[in-house]
Protein backbone atom coordinates (compact mmCIF):
# COMPACT_ATOMS: atom_id res chain seq x y z
CA UNK A 1 0.00 0.00 0.00
CA UNK A 2 1.71 3.17 -1.10
CA UNK A 3 -1.16 5.53 -0.92
CA UNK A 4 -4.21 4.54 0.97
CA UNK A 5 -6.54 4.50 -2.00
CA UNK A 6 -7.07 1.17 -3.70
CA UNK A 7 -7.53 2.42 -7.25
CA UNK A 8 -4.57 4.80 -7.16
CA UNK A 9 -2.43 2.01 -5.77
CA UNK A 10 -3.63 -0.32 -8.49
CA UNK A 11 -2.76 2.08 -11.27
CA UNK A 12 0.64 2.80 -9.77
CA UNK A 13 1.41 -0.87 -9.44
CA UNK A 14 0.32 -1.64 -13.00
CA UNK A 15 2.49 1.16 -14.35
CA UNK A 16 5.45 0.07 -12.24
CA UNK A 17 5.19 -3.55 -13.39
CA UNK A 18 4.84 -2.46 -17.01
CA UNK A 19 7.90 -0.26 -16.75
CA UNK A 20 9.92 -3.01 -15.13
CA UNK A 21 8.76 -5.59 -17.64
CA UNK A 22 9.38 -3.55 -20.76
CA UNK A 23 12.60 -2.06 -19.42
CA UNK A 24 14.10 -5.42 -18.59
CA UNK A 25 12.88 -6.87 -21.89
CA UNK A 26 14.64 -4.14 -23.84
CA UNK A 27 17.83 -4.77 -21.92
CA UNK A 28 17.48 -8.46 -22.69
CA UNK A 29 17.06 -7.74 -26.40
CA UNK A 30 20.16 -5.60 -26.40
CA UNK A 31 22.09 -8.22 -24.46
CA UNK A 32 21.09 -10.87 -26.95
CA UNK A 33 22.31 -8.82 -29.88
CA UNK A 34 25.62 -7.99 -28.31
CA UNK A 35 26.43 -11.25 -26.57
CA UNK A 36 25.56 -13.41 -29.55
CA UNK A 37 27.55 -11.11 -31.80
CA UNK A 38 30.68 -11.41 -29.71
CA UNK A 39 30.31 -15.15 -29.54
CA UNK A 40 30.13 -15.20 -33.32
CA UNK A 41 33.25 -13.10 -33.67
CA UNK A 42 31.51 -9.93 -34.75
CA UNK A 43 30.55 -6.69 -33.05
CA UNK A 44 26.79 -6.39 -33.11
CA UNK A 45 24.92 -3.07 -32.96
CA UNK A 46 27.43 -0.33 -33.42
CA UNK A 47 25.87 2.80 -34.79
CA UNK A 48 22.46 3.25 -33.24
CA UNK A 49 22.96 5.60 -30.30
CA UNK A 50 26.72 6.05 -30.27
CA UNK A 51 29.55 3.56 -30.09
CA UNK A 52 27.76 0.91 -28.07
CA UNK A 53 24.63 0.74 -30.13
CA UNK A 54 22.40 0.88 -27.06
CA UNK A 55 19.56 2.50 -28.96
CA UNK A 56 19.17 -0.51 -31.27
CA UNK A 57 16.24 -2.08 -29.39
CA UNK A 58 14.40 1.25 -29.42
CA UNK A 59 15.09 1.64 -33.10
CA UNK A 60 13.80 -1.88 -33.74
CA UNK A 61 10.65 -1.24 -31.72
CA UNK A 62 9.95 2.01 -33.57
CA UNK A 63 10.58 0.34 -36.90
CA UNK A 64 8.09 -2.41 -36.17
CA UNK A 65 5.44 -0.05 -34.89
CA UNK A 66 5.46 2.11 -37.98
CA UNK A 67 5.00 -0.84 -40.37
CA UNK A 68 1.78 -1.63 -42.15
CA UNK A 69 -0.58 -3.76 -40.16
CA UNK A 70 -1.58 -6.68 -42.37
CA UNK A 71 -4.35 -9.12 -41.68
CA UNK A 72 -4.44 -11.93 -44.29
CA UNK A 73 -7.64 -12.14 -46.28
CA UNK A 74 -8.42 -15.70 -45.29
CA UNK A 75 -7.53 -15.26 -41.65
CA UNK A 76 -10.00 -15.43 -38.83
CA UNK A 77 -9.73 -11.74 -37.96
CA UNK A 78 -10.94 -11.70 -34.35
CA UNK A 79 -8.69 -14.54 -33.22
CA UNK A 80 -5.79 -13.35 -35.36
CA UNK A 81 -5.90 -9.87 -33.84
CA UNK A 82 -6.31 -10.94 -30.24
CA UNK A 83 -3.70 -13.69 -30.08
CA UNK A 84 -0.69 -11.44 -29.38
CA UNK A 85 -2.49 -9.61 -26.60
CA UNK A 86 -3.23 -12.85 -24.81
CA UNK A 87 0.43 -13.80 -24.87
CA UNK A 88 1.54 -10.42 -23.57
CA UNK A 89 -1.16 -10.27 -20.92
CA UNK A 90 -0.19 -13.68 -19.58
CA UNK A 91 3.46 -12.71 -19.39
CA UNK A 92 2.57 -9.44 -17.71
CA UNK A 93 0.56 -11.30 -15.13
CA UNK A 94 3.56 -13.39 -14.11
CA UNK A 95 5.46 -10.24 -13.18
CA UNK A 96 2.79 -9.39 -10.64
CA UNK A 97 3.93 -11.98 -8.13
CA UNK A 98 7.70 -11.80 -8.52
CA UNK A 99 9.25 -10.25 -5.42
CA UNK A 100 12.04 -7.77 -5.92
CA UNK A 101 12.37 -7.55 -2.18
CA UNK A 102 10.13 -8.55 0.73
CA UNK A 103 8.06 -5.40 0.27
CA UNK A 104 8.69 -4.66 -3.42
CA UNK A 105 6.19 -7.03 -4.86
CA UNK A 106 3.05 -6.05 -6.69
CA UNK A 107 0.95 -8.61 -4.86
CA UNK A 108 2.31 -11.20 -2.52
CA UNK A 109 -0.19 -13.97 -3.09
CA UNK A 110 -0.23 -16.95 -0.75
CA UNK A 111 -0.77 -19.09 -3.79
CA UNK A 112 1.97 -17.25 -5.72
CA UNK A 113 3.55 -20.24 -7.39
CA UNK A 114 0.24 -21.80 -8.35
CA UNK A 115 -0.97 -18.55 -9.89
CA UNK A 116 2.31 -18.16 -11.78
CA UNK A 117 2.20 -21.59 -13.38
CA UNK A 118 -1.46 -21.39 -14.20
CA UNK A 119 -1.30 -18.05 -15.91
CA UNK A 120 1.92 -18.62 -17.79
CA UNK A 121 0.28 -21.56 -19.54
CA UNK A 122 -2.13 -19.13 -21.18
CA UNK A 123 0.67 -18.27 -23.59
CA UNK A 124 0.16 -21.71 -25.14
CA UNK A 125 -3.35 -20.71 -25.98
CA UNK A 126 -2.17 -17.51 -27.62
CA UNK A 127 0.33 -19.39 -29.74
CA UNK A 128 -2.21 -21.92 -30.92
CA UNK A 129 -4.63 -19.14 -31.77
CA UNK A 130 -1.94 -17.40 -33.81
CA UNK A 131 -1.03 -20.52 -35.73
CA UNK A 132 -4.55 -21.63 -36.48
CA UNK A 133 -6.05 -18.33 -37.49
CA UNK A 134 -3.30 -17.31 -39.90
CA UNK A 135 -4.72 -19.26 -42.86
CA UNK A 136 -1.20 -20.34 -43.81
CA UNK A 137 0.11 -23.89 -43.92
CA UNK A 138 3.46 -22.91 -42.48
CA UNK A 139 1.86 -21.09 -39.58
CA UNK A 140 -0.41 -24.03 -38.95
CA UNK A 141 2.49 -26.42 -38.76
CA UNK A 142 4.38 -24.04 -36.50
CA UNK A 143 1.40 -23.52 -34.24
CA UNK A 144 0.75 -27.23 -33.85
CA UNK A 145 4.40 -27.93 -33.20
CA UNK A 146 4.36 -25.15 -30.59
CA UNK A 147 1.26 -26.49 -28.93
CA UNK A 148 2.68 -29.97 -28.61
CA UNK A 149 5.99 -28.68 -27.34
CA UNK A 150 4.58 -26.27 -24.79
CA UNK A 151 2.21 -28.83 -23.35
CA UNK A 152 4.93 -31.43 -23.12
CA UNK A 153 7.31 -29.15 -21.28
CA UNK A 154 4.74 -27.73 -18.86
CA UNK A 155 4.86 -30.96 -16.93
CA UNK A 156 8.54 -31.04 -15.95
CA UNK A 157 8.28 -27.34 -15.12
CA UNK A 158 5.37 -27.87 -12.76
CA UNK A 159 6.83 -31.00 -11.18
CA UNK A 160 10.14 -29.37 -10.32
CA UNK A 161 8.33 -26.42 -8.82
CA UNK A 162 6.27 -28.84 -6.71
CA UNK A 163 9.51 -30.21 -5.31
CA UNK A 164 10.57 -26.71 -4.29
CA UNK A 165 7.21 -26.05 -2.69
CA UNK A 166 7.53 -29.26 -0.71
CA UNK A 167 10.90 -28.21 0.55
CA UNK A 168 9.86 -24.64 1.37
CA UNK A 169 6.51 -25.50 2.86
CA UNK A 170 4.75 -22.54 1.26
CA UNK A 171 3.53 -21.45 -2.15
CA UNK A 172 4.12 -17.77 -1.65
CA UNK A 173 7.20 -16.56 -3.47
CA UNK A 174 8.28 -14.28 -0.65
CA UNK A 175 7.86 -17.23 1.69
CA UNK A 176 10.06 -19.39 -0.51
CA UNK A 177 12.83 -16.79 -0.41
CA UNK A 178 12.55 -16.56 3.33
CA UNK A 179 12.69 -20.34 3.62
CA UNK A 180 16.01 -20.18 1.83
CA UNK A 181 17.18 -17.32 4.02
CA UNK A 182 16.34 -19.25 7.18
CA UNK A 183 19.54 -20.64 8.65
CA UNK A 184 20.10 -24.33 9.19
CA UNK A 185 21.75 -25.34 12.43
CA UNK A 186 24.64 -27.68 11.83
CA UNK A 187 26.04 -28.05 15.30
CA UNK A 188 27.68 -24.79 16.32
CA UNK A 189 27.45 -23.33 12.81
CA UNK A 190 24.36 -21.88 11.31
CA UNK A 191 24.35 -21.22 7.57
CA UNK A 192 21.65 -20.50 5.12
CA UNK A 193 21.79 -21.88 1.61
CA UNK A 194 19.72 -21.38 -1.49
CA UNK A 195 17.72 -24.39 -2.55
CA UNK A 196 20.13 -25.08 -5.35
CA UNK A 197 22.68 -26.15 -2.82
CA UNK A 198 20.18 -27.85 -0.56
CA UNK A 199 19.53 -30.81 -2.87
CA UNK A 200 17.66 -29.17 -5.70
CA UNK A 201 20.40 -29.24 -8.31
CA UNK A 202 18.60 -31.79 -10.46
CA UNK A 203 15.43 -29.80 -10.14
CA UNK A 204 17.21 -26.64 -11.20
CA UNK A 205 18.64 -28.22 -14.33
CA UNK A 206 15.27 -29.65 -15.31
CA UNK A 207 13.58 -26.34 -14.65
CA UNK A 208 16.04 -24.47 -16.85
CA UNK A 209 15.67 -26.98 -19.70
CA UNK A 210 11.90 -26.82 -19.46
CA UNK A 211 12.01 -23.03 -19.27
CA UNK A 212 14.08 -22.76 -22.46
CA UNK A 213 11.56 -25.07 -24.12
CA UNK A 214 8.63 -23.03 -22.86
CA UNK A 215 10.22 -19.94 -24.34
CA UNK A 216 10.68 -21.66 -27.72
CA UNK A 217 14.33 -20.75 -27.84
CA UNK A 218 17.08 -22.68 -29.53
CA UNK A 219 17.59 -25.65 -29.04
CA UNK A 220 13.82 -25.94 -28.77
CA UNK A 221 12.71 -23.46 -31.38
CA UNK A 222 11.05 -25.87 -33.75
CA UNK A 223 7.85 -23.75 -33.72
CA UNK A 224 9.73 -20.84 -35.17
CA UNK A 225 12.45 -22.78 -37.02
CA UNK A 226 13.51 -19.91 -39.21
CA UNK A 227 15.30 -21.88 -41.80
CA UNK A 228 12.43 -24.25 -42.38
CA UNK A 229 9.13 -22.56 -41.85
CA UNK A 230 10.05 -18.94 -42.44
CA UNK A 231 8.75 -17.88 -39.07
CA UNK A 232 6.34 -20.60 -37.96
CA UNK A 233 3.23 -19.32 -36.26
CA UNK A 234 4.52 -15.75 -36.49
CA UNK A 235 4.79 -15.70 -40.27
CA UNK A 236 1.73 -13.57 -40.96
CA UNK A 237 2.23 -11.04 -38.19
CA UNK A 238 3.58 -7.57 -38.78
CA UNK A 239 3.82 -4.22 -37.08
CA UNK A 240 2.45 -3.79 -33.57
CA UNK A 241 1.22 -7.37 -33.21
CA UNK A 242 4.63 -8.71 -34.08
CA UNK A 243 6.18 -6.31 -31.58
CA UNK A 244 3.87 -7.74 -28.94
CA UNK A 245 5.07 -11.27 -29.63
CA UNK A 246 8.65 -10.16 -29.83
CA UNK A 247 8.63 -8.18 -26.60
CA UNK A 248 6.55 -10.88 -24.99
CA UNK A 249 9.19 -13.46 -25.73
CA UNK A 250 11.93 -11.48 -24.07
CA UNK A 251 9.71 -10.48 -21.18
CA UNK A 252 8.92 -14.15 -20.68
CA UNK A 253 12.63 -14.89 -20.72
CA UNK A 254 13.13 -12.40 -17.91
CA UNK A 255 10.16 -13.70 -15.98
CA UNK A 256 11.25 -17.34 -16.23
CA UNK A 257 14.75 -16.40 -15.12
CA UNK A 258 13.31 -14.40 -12.25
CA UNK A 259 11.21 -17.36 -11.17
CA UNK A 260 14.20 -19.67 -11.40
CA UNK A 261 16.30 -17.23 -9.42
CA UNK A 262 13.62 -16.94 -6.75
CA UNK A 263 12.93 -20.64 -6.44
CA UNK A 264 16.43 -22.03 -6.66
CA UNK A 265 18.99 -19.30 -6.21
CA UNK A 266 17.54 -17.37 -3.33
CA UNK A 267 15.82 -14.51 -5.14
CA UNK A 268 16.46 -11.11 -3.66
CA UNK A 269 18.35 -12.57 -0.71
CA UNK A 270 22.05 -13.16 -0.49
CA UNK A 271 24.11 -14.41 2.46
CA UNK A 272 25.98 -11.86 4.55
CA UNK A 273 23.55 -9.09 3.61
CA UNK A 274 21.70 -7.80 6.67
CA UNK A 275 17.88 -7.77 6.74
CA UNK A 276 17.62 -4.03 6.81
CA UNK A 277 19.69 -3.53 3.64
CA UNK A 278 17.71 -6.14 1.73
CA UNK A 279 14.88 -3.76 0.92
CA UNK A 280 17.25 -1.53 -1.02
CA UNK A 281 19.83 -4.00 -2.32
CA UNK A 282 17.34 -6.79 -3.00
CA UNK A 283 16.27 -5.70 -6.48
CA UNK A 284 19.86 -5.45 -7.64
CA UNK A 285 20.66 -8.87 -6.28
CA UNK A 286 17.71 -10.35 -8.09
CA UNK A 287 18.56 -8.56 -11.33
CA UNK A 288 22.13 -9.82 -11.11
CA UNK A 289 20.89 -13.38 -10.78
CA UNK A 290 18.48 -12.88 -13.67
CA UNK A 291 21.37 -11.58 -15.75
CA UNK A 292 23.43 -14.69 -15.13
CA UNK A 293 20.59 -16.99 -16.11
CA UNK A 294 19.74 -14.96 -19.22
CA UNK A 295 23.38 -15.12 -20.22
CA UNK A 296 23.24 -18.89 -20.04
CA UNK A 297 20.21 -18.89 -22.29
CA UNK A 298 21.99 -16.72 -24.82
CA UNK A 299 25.08 -18.88 -24.62
CA UNK A 300 23.04 -21.98 -25.37
CA UNK A 301 21.43 -20.21 -28.30
CA UNK A 302 24.76 -19.43 -29.95
CA UNK A 303 26.19 -22.87 -29.55
CA UNK A 304 23.65 -25.52 -30.38
CA UNK A 305 21.43 -26.38 -33.35
CA UNK A 306 17.80 -27.16 -32.86
CA UNK A 307 16.33 -30.47 -31.86
CA UNK A 308 13.90 -32.18 -34.16
CA UNK A 309 10.31 -32.39 -33.00
CA UNK A 310 10.32 -36.07 -32.12
CA UNK A 311 13.64 -35.78 -30.31
CA UNK A 312 12.22 -32.87 -28.36
CA UNK A 313 9.14 -34.83 -27.31
CA UNK A 314 11.34 -37.81 -26.50
CA UNK A 315 13.42 -35.68 -24.17
CA UNK A 316 10.36 -34.35 -22.35
CA UNK A 317 8.30 -37.49 -21.94
CA UNK A 318 10.96 -40.13 -21.50
CA UNK A 319 13.57 -38.25 -19.56
CA UNK A 320 12.49 -35.04 -17.89
CA UNK A 321 9.14 -36.17 -16.49
CA UNK A 322 10.32 -39.41 -14.84
CA UNK A 323 13.36 -37.67 -13.40
CA UNK A 324 11.31 -34.81 -12.03
CA UNK A 325 8.88 -37.27 -10.45
CA UNK A 326 11.79 -39.01 -8.81
CA UNK A 327 13.01 -35.62 -7.69
CA UNK A 328 9.77 -34.99 -5.84
CA UNK A 329 10.01 -38.33 -4.09
CA UNK A 330 13.58 -37.65 -3.08
CA UNK A 331 12.86 -34.18 -1.76
CA UNK A 332 9.80 -35.34 0.09
CA UNK A 333 11.74 -38.13 1.74
CA UNK A 334 14.54 -35.74 2.60
CA UNK A 335 12.20 -33.20 4.10
CA UNK A 336 10.28 -35.62 6.23
CA UNK A 337 13.11 -37.77 7.44
CA UNK A 338 16.02 -35.38 7.65
CA UNK A 339 14.72 -31.88 8.01
Amino acid sequence: MITGYFWVDLILKVVAVLVVMIGLALVAIYAELKVMAHMQNRIGPYYAGGRWGWAQPFADALKFIQKEDLVPAGADAAIFKSAPYIVVAATFATFVVIPFSSSLVARNLDLGVFFLLAISSLTTLGVLMAGWSSANKYSLMGGLRAGAQLIAYELPLVLTVVAVVVQAGTMSLVGIVEAQAAPIELGPLSISLPFLLKGQIVGFVIFMVAAVAELSRIPFDMPIAESELTMGYLTEYSSLRFTMFFLGEYAAMISMSAVAATLFLGGYWMPFVPESALTYVGPFILIAKIAVLVFFMLWIRSTWPRLREDQLQDLAWRWLIPVSLANILFVGFFKVVVF
Binding site: Q40, P219, W304, P305
Partner: peptide, 16 residues
Protein backbone atom coordinates in the same frame (compact mmCIF):
# COMPACT_ATOMS: atom_id res chain seq x y z
CA UNK B 1 24.97 -26.50 -43.20
CA UNK B 2 24.94 -26.09 -39.39
CA UNK B 3 23.03 -22.86 -39.94
CA UNK B 4 20.23 -24.80 -41.58
CA UNK B 5 20.11 -27.05 -38.56
CA UNK B 6 19.90 -24.03 -36.27
CA UNK B 7 23.48 -23.47 -35.11
CA UNK B 8 24.33 -19.92 -35.97
CA UNK B 9 27.97 -19.65 -34.91
CA UNK B 10 30.10 -21.89 -37.19
CA UNK B 11 29.12 -19.71 -40.16
CA UNK B 12 31.06 -16.70 -38.98
CA UNK B 13 34.15 -18.56 -37.89
CA UNK B 14 34.54 -20.59 -41.06
CA UNK B 15 33.79 -17.84 -43.57
CA UNK B 16 36.60 -15.79 -42.10
Amino acid sequence: YPLELGATTPLFHALR
